[in-house]
Write a protein that binds this DNA or RNA. Structure first.
Length: 693
DNA sequence: CAGTGAGCGAGCTTCCGCTTGACTT
């Protein structure tokens, strides 16, 4: 008879199996094994919120095989993760496997020593931690399964709301409004191109300096508002004497970055490798299953002693003694509500430098990023030499009394020691300033006034949205990527040409409804408050049913009130002065799943509809000759070009028509994603391909 | 390649968080 150890991940089970030998059988639960039913609320409100757990069909097979394994085992050891969800999984396993006796163990590193140590100190399941998870689950279910149906009734079918997704949409909507409201302000800067008098011919002895003070007063960012002001300064400085006033030199240390968590990996892979969070996770899953990296869903920055030792060895042997700081670096998690059940994301074996592995290209790129970031996290800091020079410019005024005083500043930065940047380069531009002395007089080569405008905040993209969610403690490592895909599937948001999130009409309407009528739920602080309640439950200071009840009572009241009060007409319909071309009745604007559209008030007798704001390209439809080609999106958000008379005419293309016609067959010419110009007719013999630069 | 809404009242949509394969296109 062997001892059965149950963990959450099959890969983890395989690795541990190698450490523990044949006295132990390892098995995986594949995450949660029990959940609330999908088809109904599954929470007995009348009965103190009792959850009605079921085993989803997906988990049936694993549960059955676990049951068999339990029969053949002398002991069962529940080794799920050491966090709220992991404790709950252990509890549900105990329940459905009918375990009388069991051991509960926890460990954070998948190493032989860690698992063997953990086996020496088994404990019981912490009921209060399980209670905290129950509260979390029940609360999320109530919010999601009560609010979504309200949206079906009052806005459009198939919509959804939830503690996490609704706040994500809110962030995007509010950012869009900031951008819309933003008014660009003009401002000017004055740049002086200076050179040492001794060698004015040498190009590299020139350097730029910027005006920072006038008459002893600092010029604020928008201090120079107009071209006139800037040109007055330039005029004033004609023939001025530029003299070095102060020289300040110092060394600046630049600390290495911590190893990756799920969130920072998704952000960095998004920025550096242009990968979506979904793609990053599937590549990471592959690396994890091949034993190349540690677990990829984590919010922890912990590193095992072994891995840090190995990094030290690698750094000293391959890069040199000076790249090792002389101690191992430890990093602490800053994000709210971190659960720290795992290590940070790092290479399983730091000696496996990227060039030693022969991986497929996308996997190799992600592995390289993870490996470099980890090694760099244990390296010396970089040292920058920075120089700051202040230059006084005194105009050669006829009357010294009204002579004005100007101060310019030039800054230079050079890399003295690259440290961790040797492995993990960051964007850094070196700017050199020639050696100069105090009181030295400089030649003015050129004075340039430049116009600038203040910039609106940028729309969120995947990396910045994930960063924001993590900072507010909203969502978990396992949900960032799925949340992003949910809010797109619901048509609440879509990506613009730069892959940045823009809210849709339906996204704005649903958000405004929630913000106005359910402000507590979509409050950015809601999750943080919930987390502190859950902590209290876990510490035994609160009963979970009371926490849920305190939330539920006022929520249920608001809900039934809004159910009566809100009218679908007010939310999803608008009057217009347009007339139906088919039957002559009035047209109104309605809000459907895919946004606003014109509809005939004579519906269902007259089924006339019209798109509200077509992205017409000004190209007539070659098929029906009545419609125009317009830019549209598929359900998944992919852009295509179709006739605006759809469904009467079903002409459509994936690629954007240029407006020109094929000289041979007369079909529309298109510009493909690879920027080739060709005929849209696949049978056209004269399918010329021109590459546009 | 995509189409929304109304009502008849069938059956269905929906949450967050933990984990991967498995229907076939």
């Amino acid at each position: 008879m062997t001892k059965l150890v149950i963990v959450e991940s099959p890969t983890k089970a395989k690795t541990l199996g190698n450490f523990l030998g044949k006295d132990y059988e390892l098995a995986a639960s594949f995450g949660h094994v029990r959940d609330l039913p999908k088809s109904k609320l599954g929470v007995d409100i009348e009965n103190n919120f009792a959850p009605q757990y079921v085993i989803p069909t997906k988990s049936r097979k694993t549960v059955n095989s676990l049951k068999k394994l339990v029969k053949d085992s002398s002991e069962v050891i529940l080794a799920t993760d050491e966090d709220r969800e992991g404790e709950a999984i252990a509890y549900h396993l105990k329940e459905i496997l009918g375990l009388k006796g069991y051991q509960r163990i926890v460990f954070h590193e998948i190493t032989e020593t860690a698992i063997k140590e953990a086996l020496k100190s088994p404990r019981q399941i912490y009921d209060s931690l399980v209670d905290a998870q129950t509260a979390r689950r029940v609360l999320d279910r109530i919010v999601g399964y009560k609010l979504s149906p309200l949206l079906w009734k009052k806005v459009a079918r198939g919509l959804s709301a939830g503690r996490v997704q609704s706040v994500a949409v809110r962030l995007i909507v509010e950012r869009e409004r900031e951008i819309q409201k933003f008014k660009a302000e003009e401002y000017w800067s004055v740049e002086a191109l200076l050179a040492k008098t001794q060698n004015p011919n040498k190009e590299n002895a020139q350097f730029p300096a910027f005006l920072i003070e006038k008459d002893g007063k600092k010029i604020p960012k928008l201090g120079i508002k107009t071209q006139k002001e800037a040109e007055e300064i330039v005029d004033d400085l004609k023939g001025a004497i530029f003299e070095i006033k102060t020289i300040e030199k110092k060394s600046v240390k630049r600390n290495s970055l911590p190893p990756f968590t799920t969130s920072t990996l998704q952000q960095t892979a998004g920025q550096k490798l242009r990968l979506s969070s979904q793609k990053t996770m599937s590549l990471a899953q592959n690396l994890y299953e091949r034993g190349l990296i540690t677990y990829h869903r984590t919010d922890s920055l912990n590193l095992s002693q072994e891995s840090v030792e190995s990094a030290r060895k690698y750094i000293i042997e391959n890069l040199g003694e000076k790249y090792w700081p002389g101690f191992s670096r430890k990093y602490k998690t800053k994000s709210k509500g971190a659960q720290e059940a795992h290590e940070a994301i790092r290479p399983s074996n730091p000696q496996n430098s990227p060039d030693k592995l022969n991986l497929e290209k996308p996997n190799a790129r992600l592995y390289k990023l993870i490996w470099e970031r980890f090694i760099a996290s244990q390296m010396s800091e970089a040292i920058l030499d920075s120089t700051n020079i202040k230059i006084q410019a005194t105009p050669s005024s006829k009357n010294p009394a009204d002579s004005k005083d100007y101060l310019f500043q030039a800054t230079g930065q050079t890399l003295k020691f690259d440290g961790f940047l040797k492995i993990y380069p960051l964007i850094f531009t070196e700017t050199d300033i020639p050696e100069v002395q105090e009181k030295e007089i400089l030649d003015l080569i050129k004075l340039t006034p430049s116009q600038h405008f203040t910039q609106p905040p940028a729309r969120y993209n995947e990396p910045s949205l994930i960063k924001a969610l993590e900072q507010y403690g909203i969502g978990r490592p396992s949900t960032y990527a799925p949340t992003i895909s949910t809010i797109q599937k619901r048509n609440y948001v879509f990506k613009d040409e730069q892959k940045r999130f823009q809210p849709s009409e339906i996204g704005m309407v649903v958000n405004d409804l929630l913000v106005e009528h359910f402000p507590k739920i979509v409050d950015i602080e809601f999750t943080a408050k919930m987390e502190s309640d859950l902590d209290n439950i876990a510490e035994g200071k609160e009963v979970w049913q009371k926490v849920v009840g305190d939330f539920y009572q006022p929520f249920a009241e608001t809900l039934s009130q809004k159910e009566k009060e809100l009218s679908k007409q007010e939310i999803a319909e608008e009057k217009t002065d347009k007339i139906c071309p088919d039957c002559g009745a009035e047209l109104i604007i309605k809000l459907g799943r895919f946004g606003k559209f014109y509809a005939c008030t004579n519906f269902p007798k007259c089924r006339y509809t019209e798109s509200l704001k077509d992205n017409k390209l000004g190209i007539p439809c070659p098929k029906c000759e009545k419609g125009e080609i317009t830019e549209k999106r598929t359900k998944r958000g992919k852009i295509f070009y179709g006739c605006n008379k759809f469904p009467k005419c079903d002409f459509a293309l994936w690629d954007k028509p240029t407006g020109e016609k094929c000289p041979k067959c007369g079909a529309l010419m298109i510009k493909t994603k690879r920027k080739q110009i060709k005929c849209s007719n696949p049978e056209c013999k004269d399918n010329i391909k021109k590459v546009e630069k």
